[in-house]
Design a protein around this nucleic acid. Sequence first.
DNA 1: GATTAGGATTGGAACGATCCAGTCCGGGTG
DNA 2: CACCCGGACTGGATCGTTCCAATCCTAATC
Lengths: 349, 349
Amino acid sequence: MGQNRRHAGPQPTLASVAERAGVSRQTVSNALNNPELLREDTLARVQAVIDEVGYTPNRAARQLRTRSSHMIGLRFEPAQEGTSNALMDRFVHTLVEATAKTGHHIVLFSGDPADPLDGYDDLLRSTAVDAFVITDTYAGTPQADLLARVGAPFVTFGRPWDDPGAKHPWVDVDGARGAELATEHLLAAGHARVAWLGWEKGSRIGEDRRTGWQRAMAAAGAVTAGLGVRITDNVDAARMAAHELLEDPTVTGFACVSDTIGIGVLHALAERGLRPGVDVGVVGFDDSLGAQVTWPGLTSVRQPLEQVAIEIVELVHTVLSHKLVEQPARMLEPSLVVRRSTQRSAVGG
Amino acid sequence: MGQNRRHAGPQPTLASVAERAGVSRQTVSNALNNPELLREDTLARVQAVIDEVGYTPNRAARQLRTRSSHMIGLRFEPAQEGTSNALMDRFVHTLVEATAKTGHHIVLFSGDPADPLDGYDDLLRSTAVDAFVITDTYAGTPQADLLARVGAPFVTFGRPWDDPGAKHPWVDVDGARGAELATEHLLAAGHARVAWLGWEKGSRIGEDRRTGWQRAMAAAGAVTAGLGVRITDNVDAARMAAHELLEDPTVTGFACVSDTIGIGVLHALAERGLRPGVDVGVVGFDDSLGAQVTWPGLTSVRQPLEQVAIEIVELVHTVLSHKLVEQPARMLEPSLVVRRSTQRSAVGG
DNA sequence: GATTAGGATTGGAACGATCCAGTCCGGGTG
DNA sequence: CACCCGGACTGGATCGTTCCAATCCTAATC
């Protein structure tokens, strides 16, 4: 619809539509933005002309007048090779779909990796975007501070770790709960001593997930001493740490802070001839592509990224319409995707 | 710079800068867009005021007048779970960086998955974007046809398979050459009989890559009869196909059309107790995350996505400045990333 | 039939930039 | 000295929309 433009002449404008329909520009504008103001027959007549000539409002003109671009900025950080943070892909896609429904679009921009603030100010001052979505809050939230200071609307994916009293809207996933789910799952599968392979200190997200492991272990009356290990996020570091822990044959469960690390544990098992799921249970985190394709399949904690994106868009919408909500924060629950790395059933064939 | 806005009053405009600098609006405009037209001292004076008040041109106004938004549209297709097409991540990121250098931004949009044309027309007619980058040309190029018809600028990542005479600009990676590299590598490693695991017929990309395998085999005087298999792009299908081929113990090399399929072959090896690299060589395609983290590491054909993005931006720029190039098409060479799945050296430890 | 209320519609004035057709000015030329 | 030239700069018009205040119209009320 609207695609059947008959004449390939100049783009139709509001004025040309108005003239053709025998009404004023304002009436056409209202037909688009406040149709309830028009009499039924007038609306129908205007609509007919709009369809006939294939009119689409000019965004620039609208943006200039209304001072809103219907664009949402997202700084697209470089994905580190070798780690499984390509989960952004899933998130961004849902974000695009969710924003499309409210007539918004996502504008990507980049910035000096050393300066987390780079790029925001420019887009904002040139009125190119109405709001921002901020995804990397793990290292503090200087962007949030900047934007809050200049009064720019934004929503973060990630709670304000450093400043729990921050009033800005955010959506996050309960990582501790995820690790708890993972650990409970391993305990229920009969692995009494579950190790934790986490990131090095300093990662708020990592520490949060770790508390979930501790909570589950404590609830089961299990000892955690010597079972919590901190390493960097790569396959080899995890492989070596797993080898070390596996020297103690009573350690048969591994809850991991990431899929990358979970995969590293699977590598160690392969090298030792231990059967994943049967001899040793392993759970990763993020349900990345790696978890899905690695042999024989890695059980993983899945974040509801689709839901996160949807809620973020809702909050953006709320903020932009100045309907301030009392507590504009949402904590979502992760879930567990069970694969063979925690299943005792026969593997193969 | 420009960030030291002193007063948080209303946004400075061209007119306000002009007044403060004691010149006309046009002069300020020229200072920004055609500085060579100004006398040196005038330029310096205007610049000083611009910096002082922290002026940034309003994009909407500029866009309205010049009819160009400096935005480039990219339809962000849903990533299929379970397949390794997260390589878009790497591509998109470079695209964002490359466009930033020319003052452009990437706007993501989505569309009805059933309608490859959905979304383009709207963005174009509302003058929201100046050009498009099209990434999925594997299923024909209806978008390219549409855009060419309405005279909209665009560049595709992927050659026009159906219409080799198409005149639109494109950048692509020589997939046949990639498969040839993979096959040559396996042959050189002593695997005389190299099987090809490809996609089902109908995929132009898949067929193209397949010819590379055939070329390398023919050059080596090797027989391909019974060694070319077509399956769907998932781990299990590949695993089963590999099992079947491995019934013939002379088949010790696998060139695969994707990493997903390569990983499936690795699964089959694990189930049969065969050592990757030592007993059987496997090469995937795309150098995805899965290839990097899967055990023991999957040799893979890597597309120069960064270079693709850069060349695409160059072409977009060329097209937008109406400097038509004679043959606006670039074919890039892939490379091979060697990992343990094709190395006879000891694995583990 | 004059008055009024309120819904429907209108036309001028922005929004903030660039385009275009000048004007101003200082110096070289005949 | 009149004339012309070209570089530097100016001011109105314009892009396509929405805001605002005013006007028109219809029907109900007195």
